[in-house]
Design a protein around this nucleic acid. Structure first.
Lengths: 349, 349
DNA sequence: CTGAAAGCGCTTACAG
DNA sequence: CTGAAAGCGCTTACAG
């Protein structure tokens, strides 16, 4: 990499590297460099297509203009979409993004944090896994801003951007109740992280507030690590085991996807035999027949807020933690429209 | 960032930074450092949790252990899935990934290349846009390995990993013909890039080989930049304008998604009124009713080959360009099963 | 108005 | 068997 350096420009312009650095960093006026010299340097730099070596600059200033983005799974539509917005927004400020997926595995997450740290990223956007609270605490000591997304730790003071998971789940569940569903189940993950807990609590509160059955039989938890085939089997087994179920709330997108597949493989008609609502909006949910009612997260807005917050912190870190809670939108579709579809009311089993 | 440096270790161990560097880089034996000293240094490094500053190392060695990944759109399921595999594979070799989306825009692509270059990435994985051939040529002069993916430039010698687009399209189209469809259209992009051209050629060849109508009326090209709503409208207009159409081949995933939506909004029954095949496999295609026949790309294998090739080049660049062409798989589903669905044969219009 | 010099944290050719 | 020194390409406090 014998790129052209500040020295080359200095030689050609007949000045010192110092002067070149000042001019190229927009400090010409401040440092009272003459118009003449300044212009000459600019011209030479342009002609030589000079690009500052970010490593050298980073080594000297401690700023790499890079942010680390840790998601659960970059292949998951929700996270991929957020990553796209983060990329676009970060670009506006001249930042690039280094990404990594945790697979909801603490060890992978710790590994990622360590790598990002010794890569000297300027700031972090993190979708934390469980048990990552101590690491997040430690990160703060490095004086690099951290913004959590999708979830956070109630016991750790930090910036975060999330959606109102409780409210979203409450609205979706209430909607099911209002549509006349009587025995509503939740299929969620075994994770006790805040975003899943809030969704669960919103679900439970809605059932209780409306006087609808809420007990262990309407709760099914499935571990994240379970592979896709086993997961579908697990949902099938659950659906077969509980009597009188007439609606299901899937607490996250991939459970919705495999849940739909399971329901169909049992020959049940979504929206007729069984109502369905899922968290997250996907092309699949919109185009499925029947279309799937869901709780859509405002991804654009999330990405903008996340990067905006990080950039603000990068400039002058505030002492108080910023908490941004966005409102998700209930997209009412056919899968929960009992009145319309169920000309003949049908009960599962 | 007053992290702990090699100097700190040297001081504590009572040796020079040089010795520490040798030991920590596994050159203890080669440099004949005594077992005793070596062990002491290791122990101190571990205790202090020493992490080499990658910037400093990079500045000195010219290696950043970072690769640049340029895709069309990280939010697109295909590219997001590839990104996941690339991340996992690169990690095995100790590399991190810096990503960027081109939106199929040359200027954005050039911008990304420039940023990655002055960030000193060690190698590039690029999904090129049109007119990016000169830039790719120039990149080669930097002596950093480049692997193209999804597409390439016939006039530029380079490494690449793609699927057999011609074969995939040929197989899908032949399948439609064999199912009894008589007037088959292709909906593709206006791009004349090789992957789209190959798909188009495979489609055209299959029609000709089977003696099925092939003329301008069965070809619809849509620009990438068109926004989603306009795109759906465009497809609707096309479907209404051409008479007797009984099947469509969508040449890429997002066209398939919006195409399905358009067909349905016209009240046409997929698999009955009109056969459908799309490139790429998605949850949506598998779970749609009827399920959508598609050409699935071997994403895992692609990612592995891409990174494998790049790593090989990183170690010792070969003089000849490596071309990997993977075989996609035709997933036959309901949307193209005329015999089964069409109890009463129906013609569009 | 401009420059010499130090230093960011490494690696490595050279010397002993 | 080990170390002093140079240098990667920048930035910036200091000096004039």
């Amino acid at each position: 990499m014998k790129g052209i350096s500040i020295k080359d420009i200095a030689t050609q312009a007949g000045v010192s590297p110092t002067t070149v650095s000042f001019v190229l960093n927009g400090k010409a006026k401040e440092k009272r460099i003459s118009e003449h010299v300044s212009r000459k340097i600019q011209k030479i730099a342009a002609k030589l297509k000079y690009r500052p070596n970010q490593l050298a600059r980073g080594l000297r200033t401690g700023k790499t203009k890079t942010i680390g983005l840790i998601v659960e799974d970059i292949a998951n539509s929700f996270f991929a979409s957020v990553a796209k917005v983060v990329e676009d927004e970060a670009d506006k400020y001249g930042y690039k993004v280094l990404y990594g997926s945790t697979e909801d595995n603490v060890e992978k997450a710790k590994g990622l944090l360590e790598v990002l740290r010794y890569r000297q990223v300027d700031g972090y956007i993190i979708t934390p896994t469980k048990h990552l609270d101590k690491e997040i605490e430690l990160l703060k000591d490095t004086n690099k801003p951290v913004v959590l997304m999708d979830r956070y730790f109630p016991n750790v003071s930090s910036h975060y951007v999330i959606v109102d998971n409780y409210g979203g789940a409450y609205a979706a569940t209430s909607h099911l109740v209002n549509q006349g569903y009587k025995k509503i189940a939740i299929v969620t993950t075994t994770s006790d992280q805040i975003q899943m807990k809030d969704r669960f609590d919103g679900f439970a509160a809605a059932l209780k507030d409306h006087g609808v059955t809420f007990n262990k039989t309407v709760v099914k938890k499935i571990p994240f690590e379970m592979d896709r085939a086993a997961l579908a089997q697990e949902i099938i087994k659950y659906l077969q085991s509980v009597k009188g179920l007439d609606a299901i709330f899937f607490a996250t997108n991939y459970l919705g996807i495999y849940g739909i597949e399971s329901i169909r493989s049992l020959g049940l008609r979504i929206g007729v035999d069984i109502g369905v609502v899922s968290f997250d909006d996907l092309d699949l949910f919109r185009l499925h027949s029947p279309s799937i009612t869901c709780i859509a997260q405002p991804i654009q807005e999330m990405g903008r807020q996340i990067v905006g917050l990080l950039m603000k912190e990068l400039n002058h870190s505030s002492s108080t933690s910023q908490h941004v809670v966005l409102t998700p939108e209930l997209m009412i579709r056919e899968s929960s429209s009992r009145q319309i579809n169920a000309k003949i009311p049908v009960m599962l089993r």
